[in-house]
Design a protein around this nucleic acid. Sequence first.
DNA 1: CTTAGTGCAAACTGTTTGCAGAGGG
DNA 2: CCCTCTGCAAACAGTTTGCACTAAG
Lengths: 141, 141
Amino acid sequence: MVLRMTNQREIILKELQRSRQHLSADELYERVKKSMPRISLATVYRNLETMSEAGLIAKLEISGRQKRFDYDASHHDHIYCLQCSRVDNIEFDRDLLGQTSPRSAKGYQITGYRVEFIGICASCGRKNSQRSQAGNKKSNG
Amino acid sequence: MVLRMTNQREIILKELQRSRQHLSADELYERVKKSMPRISLATVYRNLETMSEAGLIAKLEISGRQKRFDYDASHHDHIYCLQCSRVDNIEFDRDLLGQTSPRSAKGYQITGYRVEFIGICASCGRKNSQRSQAGNKKSNG
DNA sequence: CTTAGTGCAAACTGTTTGCAGAGGG
DNA sequence: CCCTCTGCAAACAGTTTGCACTAAG
């Protein structure tokens, strides 16, 4: 049960931190392969799981999407892009929601809540407005 | 593009409504099979997709879990059980969150947000307290 | 040395798709 | 009649697992 700091584990963790993004297992695998070509995807999955259990990183489970991993294990909320699935941190007054949210409902004992913001990221927004500019003279189907 | 009300579609819809629960595609498939044994799981998936696009039902995408479908298509929030994955409706003051939540962040144009409550449902809570009663005389590992 | 961790391939879960034939309007 | 819908099987994406071998402590 003692956690060993293997080469693989270290590289995965460093790559995730270096990215400053919320990467999926396969994105991370592609990056890590560059410095360790024989690493397997299963190892990446196993280590991400282990490290998120150990609290070194956080596992993000966004509705209906591939899991992503966060170099920042502290509790915070996220926003994701409808178009490209990119995930970023978001800050808002979580306490206020905590005050107004119910403590129990329908016999449930409530242990927590998750807030996901949904939107269009800067780069997709830019692409969209370029596209609609171009399409202006034609129709917009 | 015209929606046909086939036998399959009707049975799926009625079964979902009758259940008054938030069922997954395969749970629904098992129920529907009783009155229509030759129906295929693909048909269930296709119809759930079609009907949620048409606004007849709602598709629930809960973090890191199988999709579930809601006979009530109106917008409301949900709570799910950590132990058995059961999903129920929950009511809370959504407007208040709307007022305090940001309208944009990190270049994102925010189009919505989703709140998920997490907890232990009544029946799992009961099981747990029975178990801990029984385990009281021993240790609690 | 011991036992956690690895690479590989194969399994598994949830969901989607291509196809030829069926049936709703 | 047409064209949407169906059942089936096969494909697919993301993730997990069994196994024999490797390496960290």
